[in-house]
């Protein structure tokens, strides 16, 4: 299932590439009703802008697919794209063409036996200008620009994460994506882009830009596979032995600094794990931890912090009137020990 912004016209209308005129009509009518502006079904799901965009795309899809000539052009355009775009491995292109392309792929893979280390194939973004009237209609899919997104490249953090091997691998549940054309491919999360016909300078529609084009990021958890020192699940086990011995509750006098460390000490004295508090309050454990270590740059807006502190006080049985404002003052003063653990 793809985001509707990435769906082609067939996927948008949820019809097969062989759908008859009648099927397209029916599907269109149903979609129109479901995504009408007064439809209850979309309430609180789509934003108004998204709904407008979706309706526009459905209209586009309908107009193109119900016009025999435009549909033919669109099919041709689609068939040039990666055949794995098609959920059932079929494309509107005739099978001969498909086989031909599969051959080309195989050839290409033989030429590049190990493209793991090679730079990604450049994506062909510029297409030679087709007839002007075609461009507007056939332009298949509005895809997101392939700008490298800010996803911070996961700094190799000290081993908080469990070794990935220990994870339950639910391989049998994996979507049975039919992989007929690329059966010869090595199964290693091969970038889809390889399947593009880079050998012949064919015009390629913008949809080919869809696969994430950012640089391959290092897989952190594979390189760092030490023992899981502080796995979150350990908290549960700990909560059962917490009754044994707890540190004393810190005294809070007038001159006691109201800071993250105090929150932490009170929490420990109450025998509470961060996980437990996160579960009760539904505050992200990430923020709870940042409150304690005073990583002020990584906290949400002040108004949320205030709410968090109030909740925290009620759980830690602290006097909120005394803690909340004092802590916020500290936050406003811009103190804090950035990033320190």
């Amino acid at each position: 299932m793809k985001d509707f912004r990435e769906q082609n016209y067939y996927e948008l209308l949820e019809v097969t590439v062989h759908a008859s005129q009648q099927e397209i009509e029916d599907s269109y009518r149903q979609a129109r009703r479901a995504f009408a502006s007064d439809s209850v079904a979309t309430y609180a799901l789509f934003s108004p802008e998204e709904l407008v965009l979706l309706r526009r795309r459905i209209e586009e899809a309908y107009r193109v697919l119900t016009d025999a000539e435009r549909r033919r052009l669109y099919d041709r355009e689609l068939s040039r794209l990666d055949s794995t775009q098609w959920p059932d491995g079929e494309t509107p292109a005739d099978t001969k063409q498909q086989e031909q392309r599969a051959d080309e792929q195989r050839q290409q893979q033989e030429q590049e036996p190990d493209n793991e280390d090679q730079p990604r194939l450049p994506l062909v973004e510029s297409k030679p200008p087709p007839p002007a009237d075609e461009v507007a209609e056939v332009d298949p899919v509005v895809t997101e620009p392939a700008e490298p997104v800010e996803s911070e490249p996961v700094e190799s953090e000290p081993v908080e994460s469990e070794p990935v091997e220990s994870e339950p691998v639910e391989s049998e549940s994996a979507e049975p994506e039919s992989a007929e054309p690329k059966s010869g491919e090595p199964k290693s999360g091969e970038p889809e882009t390889v399947v593009l016909e880079s050998t012949k300078p064919e015009p390629v529609g913008p949809e080919s830009v869809a696969p994430p084009a950012g640089p391959a990021l290092p897989r952190v958890e594979k390189t760092e596979s030490g023992p899981a020192t502080d796995a979150p699940s350990a908290g549960e086990a700990a909560s059962t032995r917490q009754e044994e011995q707890l540190p004393p509750l810190p005294r809070i006098d007038d001159d006691t600094p109201i800071d993250g460390e105090l929150l932490r000490r009170v929490r420990l004295a109450r025998g509470l794990e961060l996980e437990r508090i996160a579960e009760i309050t539904k505050i992200s454990i990430y923020y709870l931890r940042n409150l304690e270590i005073e990583d002020f740059t990584n906290l949400p807006a002040r108004v949320y912090v205030r709410g968090y502190l109030k909740q925290l006080c009620s759980i830690l049985e602290l006097d909120a009137s005394r803690i909340v404002d004092a802590y916020l003052a500290r936050l406003d003063a811009g103190g804090g020990r950035e990033g320190e653990g």
Binding site: M1, D3, A34
Partner: peptide, 18 residues
Amino acid sequence: AELGPAVLLACRKYLGIE
């Protein structure tokens, strides 16, 4: 009574949940 299919459609399109 038509709400059911419409919700299915909306959910599939937006959330990807079938």
